[in-house]
């Protein structure tokens, strides 16, 4: 768990964030024909980064390796799809709280049942619950079954009858995603520094000792699981809004594994690491795909190389660099 960012690193991250925020300006000049596609791509990556950060709270901070986290991501999306009228816009102030509430409740129940186990058993129980969610939507006809469901009109964001944000606008939605990304990062940073976050981080290091100090680890894990599940639902809600489509694959173990890879690859417990992981993995995917049909090959090689060469992920490398030479742990 990293509580304070070294100055050099903070500067690098702010520069990267600024580059991303200004992409609508410089991207048009550099990429011209591909600009629209890249805007969509980057928006999608930011949403995945939100999901990755929420998983980091579990994996990197509390030491709870969930392989079913995408289920809450998909659930958030499905709530939007189910609540949207067929050819009309839903009201964001209704559907968003509803999606978050459903995800909070679902993660509370799944968390309550899962945290009784630990280690590889926790990995597998969360996988099982994730797959149950996957098959629930895959087999249910009301939710479109394996074909998924469409959201034809994006929800409206109104205040006093005036449209505040038009989510149909690609540029607006890009900044909405960016805003949520930064907001969720700030929220999680605040959580990690709070008394709750300190206990959670300690559980990730030495759960037995935490109990010996007078904390009940189960309660903290359950709250963390619920917070992470709700934030994942927020990500899923955004993803469903962006693509206008939800499918069972959003909940499946491939998606969960994919996000877990982002977290580990980026650097667990650092929050910014998983965000970098999301960008690196997705952009590498995109780059390899445009080079060769057999893009999985370089992708797999890249993942293996990072495991072998960077045991603490990309964030570990950056942290070491920013602390300067000789500064170890």
């Amino acid at each position: 768990m990293t509580l304070h960012l070294p100055k050099r690193l903070a500067i690098v991250l702010v520069v990267l964030l600024a580059a991303l925020a200004l992409f609508p300006l410089w991207g048009k000049l550099v990429f011209a024909a591909k600009f629209a596609f890249l805007m969509q791509k980057l928006t999608g990556i930011m949403i995945l980064a939100i999901l990755a950060m929420s998983l980091d709270l579990l994996v990197g901070v509390a030491g709870l390796v969930s392989l079913g986290h995408a289920a809450f991501f998909g659930l958030g999306g499905y709530v939007l799809a189910m609540m949207s009228p067929q050819y009309e816009a839903a009201n964001l102030w209704v559907v968003l709280p509803a999606a978050l509430a459903v995800c909070a409740l679902a993660s509370l129940v799944v968390g309550y049942l899962s945290i009784r186990t630990s280690g590889i058993y926790f990995i597998m129980v969360t996988l099982a619950f994730g797959q149950m969610g996957y098959y629930f939507f895959n087999d249910s006809k009301a939710a479109g079954g394996s074909d998924g469901a469409y959201i034809y009109v994006k929800p409206t964001v109104e205040a006093f009858g005036i449209t505040v944000l038009d989510l149909e606008q690609k540029l607006t939605f890009f900044y909405v995603a960016l805003g949520v990304l930064v907001g969720v990062y700030a929220l999680l940073r605040m959580l990690l520094a709070s008394p709750f976050g300190r206990v959670l981080g300690a559980i990730g290091v030495n759960e037995y000792r935490v109990q010996g100090l007078g904390f009940n680890p189960m309660v903290y894990k359950l709250v963390a699981f619920t917070i992470a599940g709700t934030l994942a639902g927020l990500g899923g809600f955004l993803a469903a809004t962006q693509y206008g489509f939800v499918s069972p694959a959003m909940l499946g173990w491939h998606q969960s594994g994919h996000v877990l890879v982002m977290v580990i690859l980026g650097g667990m417990g650092t929050l910014f690491g998983p965000v970098l992981g999301a960008f690196i993995l997705e952009l590498a995917h995109f780059a390899f795909e445009s080079m060769t049909d057999h893009w999985l090959l370089p992708m797999g090689a890249m993942v293996i190389a990072i495991v072998l060469l960077l045991p603490k992920g990309v964030a570990g490398l950056l942290l070491q660099w920013s602390k300067g030479k000789g500064a170890g742990e």
Partner: peptide, 21 residues
């Protein structure tokens, strides 16, 4: 600090930095 924090009535506090106690 963590050990001392365990004497707070509750550590389910999310918004203030733990260092400010």
């Amino acid at each position: 600090r963590l050990a001392a924090q365990s004497r707070l009535a509750s550590s389910m506090k999310f918004f203030r930095s733990a260092s400010s106690y």
